[in-house]
Design a protein around this nucleic acid. Sequence first.
DNA 1: ACACTGTCTCGACGTTTGTCGAATCAGAGA
DNA 2: TCTCTGATTCGACAAACGTCGAGACAGTGT
Lengths: 124, 124
Amino acid sequence: MSKQTPELNLVDLNAGQPCCAPISEQRIPAETAALLAPAFKALGDPVRLQLMSMIASAPDGEICVCDLTPAFDLTGPTISHHLKTLREAGLVDAERRGTWVYYRPRPALIAQLASLLAVQAPVG
Amino acid sequence: MSKQTPELNLVDLNAGQPCCAPISEQRIPAETAALLAPAFKALGDPVRLQLMSMIASAPDGEICVCDLTPAFDLTGPTISHHLKTLREAGLVDAERRGTWVYYRPRPALIAQLASLLAVQAPVG
DNA sequence: ACACTGTCTCGACGTTTGTCGAATCAGAGA
DNA sequence: TCTCTGATTCGACAAACGTCGAGACAGTGT
């Protein structure tokens, strides 16, 4: 799991910088839309949105799958599948330590989504 | 079209107020996730993300379907379907004036999504 | 009344998604 | 080495999705 899924480079257009103006300020080009839509899509399932929230708000900056799974009425494989979706969207990162696997948020992409949705800047 | 789709009340939990803390600050409850996930899902398609961007950045605060459709290599019905999805997610509003239909963003929900994704508050 | 234009609805289609059970892989420990 | 537990992968299946063409609806103008 330290070796992440290889197709993660979908979303490293951003090196952490603001990237793109809010959608209320200018149209986003097709390529940007194609790049960012998968991240929104990944958040577009209630289970994954909750998972993302649990991961992002984990007190230690990370959380064990063993703490995520029992929070849902779903099987382990299903949770694992959702976590993979979040991983492939570039929203989270996973690391195995011993028997357990820990998930961490990837703040860069999250910030990018947030700034895209940001409401009108004070002046513009 | 002035009579909007009736199931729009999906997302008027918010009367415009901040609603919920960022996911990086606390876990969102299942009901909130169920309420907001459809909005993220609606943004999870490249075409809809671009549509949303065109609508949100329209200089007059609104934009005609006749200006949206030719921006894509898709048929009218398909664009109409995507617009309906955005409408039902509560992200946009539509109004018919004469022959044309104009779409407007609904900033309340957009702001809610943005604040949910907001990065760590300065102190926390 | 009629024709024309813009938009939406309806049905159909292939593809993708969410879920599960079974099987597999990765480490820990006896 | 063998077994046990935690997590992932695989295969299957029903449901939902994105797209289209054909048809219907709404307004304008003749």
